[in-house]
Write a protein that binds this DNA or RNA. Structure first.
Length: 593
RNA sequence: GCCUUCGUAGCUCAGUUGGAAGAGCGACGCAUUCGUAAUGCGUAGGUCGUCGGUUCGAAUCCGACCGAAGGCUCCA
């Protein structure tokens, strides 16, 4: 008879995180119990806690329906009402294999477990292979809701069978659960796909193609401003801008090694006789060819090339998502050719550009991953241990000097070197990689890049790949959600709307607009035959930073009555004073008016 | 790519058992000339995603395709 091994825990004594994890994982057990009752043939996968609840994966004889979720929830409530104790027991491999002989996924899990470390958990009539971490009894499972049904591959691998995953949300109180649902609803309102349509920024066309965003005039204005900002920063820090076209012979990527590593992510080739052309999915090889166009001395280094390059990547259709995952993207790409002892300074310079940009956008909700090779296994990483070590040390040291917090992720490096990625979350909590800085000591050698050293001999440069904001499209998507569409003045596609109160004020409104345009501002006049209230409402919903009301009093005095997007009324201000105010705001790229 | 759900006007959506395609917002026109978040009246706008099938008859049922959303990471 197996021994009970988990003793009573006082939930109140636990850290909230641990307590929630126990509650969520326990709820997953109860879900599995209910599922087995609904469909006795169900094959069970895993049921871990998540950041907002839990899930459980099942292989089932038929697809789940909404009605099933309702039934499962009721059945779970029943178990919870019975306050069934969770009992952990150690069992032998033999016992486990006997119990789950008809449960292939449990047997698969069992194969990875050490003898003596096999435990199971029972509540009521239901027993699951389980490492532990529960509440004492089902009555301690608080407010939860079954949220959605999704497909998920066993162990996340598409070579494995696909299971049905039931997602649940779980919080300690009903109020918190409701707050979570309200927050989801709020997030949907900020979704960049929705805001992008409402503000007339971008669209998609079935006829043009999947994953190819089309930018409307206002969206292109924002794009252009974002890129101009990065261009200005790059010029200021010694980068030279270049341009290398959209199509490249496939042969180049064979030499660089990209074809071997990224073939799946490239559009199929265009064939001309016996030459293949590819839509350019990355710039590095092109920039190396630029480097090779001229002889270089060590005195030229570091040499910093930058390009706003439109790239094409054949992302899987199911992965495409708004502006954050597209097939046509524009990278603010840069390649820095340097000597090995310049790596650390150049990495630090790249870091400072990224930091400056993120700060300008008021962006603080991101994490930094330092991606390192999986030492020992070799595998996809090019074999050059001393170079890897040198590069990893330079990056670590630069990261530490910068004072930024970062996590090291082993095995995540690019095939050509280690890298640091800046990763932000969208409103739905999904993570997207933005800025990136990568060290490359492989490709320059493959593509024959050389410089003449102090010693008069040829040397191979080190290459730094870096993108300040990453892809303009993705960064814009994240920015739209970050600002909820209310861009700071310098970035707003329309910076002010002039609102004539009656038709007779239109000439003055036009005059105001002309003066503002002369000062370089983007201004619209709302000359519709609408009441002022309606025009204000429209400008508010379009998130225009300033509304300038022009009526008799203003026309008489040469002023504008200024309403800020925040709702604040600044009253009548001489036009020249208003211009001075917003010139300052534009100059400093102020986040708030 | 795969799983689930979905596709009706520019947008948000309604459309009963298969029996004459609807609303609000937006657009346009006319009237109104208004002081800080929606003036009134009117008009236009749809191959019901596409193609095929079942049927006397299809937005509705079936199939294929196209597209979109969520998921395929958080290790029993």
């Amino acid at each position: 008879m197996p021994e009970p091994i988990e003793s009573h825990v006082d939930l109140a004594d636990l850290q909230q995180e641990e307590r929630l994890a126990r509650m969520r994982h326990s709820a997953a057990h109860v879900l599995a119990e209910a599922m087995v009752e609904l469909m006795p043939e169900a094959e069970l996968g895993i049921g871990p806690p998540t950041a907002t609840g839990f899930y459980y994966d099942f292989r089932l004889p038929r697809p789940l329906t909404q009605e099933d979720l309702t039934w499962l929830r009721r059945r779970m409530r029943k178990s919870i009402g019975r306050r069934l104790p969770f009992q952990m027991e150690a069992i032998t491999r033999g016992e486990a294999e006997g119990r789950w002989s008809d449960q292939p996924f449990k047997l698969d899990l069992l194969a990875d477990l050490e003898d003596g470390a096999i435990t199971q958990c029972t509540h009521g009539q239901f027993t699951d292979l389980c490492r532990g971490g529960h509440v004492n009894h089902t009555g301690e499972i608080p407010a939860f809701k079954l949220m959605s049904i999704a497909g998920a591959y066993w162990r996340g691998d598409e070579a494995n069978p696909q299971l049905q995953r039931v997602y649940g949300a779980l919080f300690e109180t009903a109020e918190e659960l409701e707050a979570y649902e309200r927050q989801l609803e709020e997030a949907r309102k900020r979704d960049h796909r929705r805001v992008g349509r409402e503000l007339g920024l971008f669209t998609f066309s079935d006829v043009v193609g999947q994953g190819i965003p089309l930018f409307l005039p206002k969206g292109e204005t924002v794009r252009h401003l974002m890129e101009s900002y990065v261009r200005e920063m790059q010029e200021r820090t010694g980068h030279q801008h270049v341009w290398t076209g959209n199509v490249v012979k496939g042969q180049l990527y064979e030499r660089s090694g990209h074809r071997e590593h990224y073939a799946d992510a490239m559009f199929p080739p265009m064939v001309d006789g016996d030459t293949e052309f590819l839509l350019k999915p990355m710039n590095c090889p092109s920039h190396m060819m630029l480097f090779n166009a001229e002889p270089h001395s060590y005195r030229d280094l570091p040499l910093r090339y930058a390009e706003f390059a439109t790239l094409y990547r054949y992302e899987k259709s199911g992965e495409l998502s708004g502006l954050t995952r597209v097939r046509a993207l524009t990278q603010d790409d840069g390649h820095i050719f340097c000597t090995p002892d310049q790596i650390q300074d150049e990495f630090a310079l790249a870091l400072s550009l990224v930091q400056e940009a993120l700060e300008t956008y008021g962006f603080s909700d991101y994490r930094i991953a330092l991606s390192l090779p999986d030492t020992g296994t070799g595998g996809k990483f090019v074999d050059a241990p001393e170079l890897w070590e040198e590069a990893v040390n330079a990056l670590r040291s630069a990261m530490e000097t910068s004072g930024l917090e970062f996590n090291e992720e082993v095995g995540e490096a690019a095939f050509y070197g280690p890298k640091a990625d800046f990763i932000a979350k969208d409103v739905l909590g999904r993570e997207w990689q933005l800025s990136t800085i990568q060290v490359d000591f492989i490709q320059p050698g493959r593509l024959g890049c050389v410089y003449t050293g102090e010693d008069g001999k040829e040397h191979t440069p080190i290459l730094l790949h870096r993108a300040v904001t990453g892809a303009t499209e993705r960064f814009m998507g994240v920015l739209i959600e970050h600002f909820g569409g209310a861009f700071p003045l310098w970035l707003a596609p329309v910076q002010a709307t002039v609102i004539p109160i009656a038709d007779r004020h239109q000439p003055y409104a036009d005059e105001v607009a002309a003066t503002l345009r002369e000062a370089g501002f983007r201004v619209e006049v709302d000359a519709r035959s609408e009441r002022m209230n309606a025009k204000i409402r429209h400008a508010q919903m379009q998130k225009v930073p300033y509304m300038l009301v022009a009526g008799d009093r203003e026309a008489e005095a040469g002023t504008v009555a200024v309403r800020v997007r925040t709702g604040e009324d600044l009253g009548a201000i001489p036009l020249a004073d208003f211009i001075a105010r917003i010139e300052g705001e534009r100059e400093t790229k102020a986040l708030a008016p």
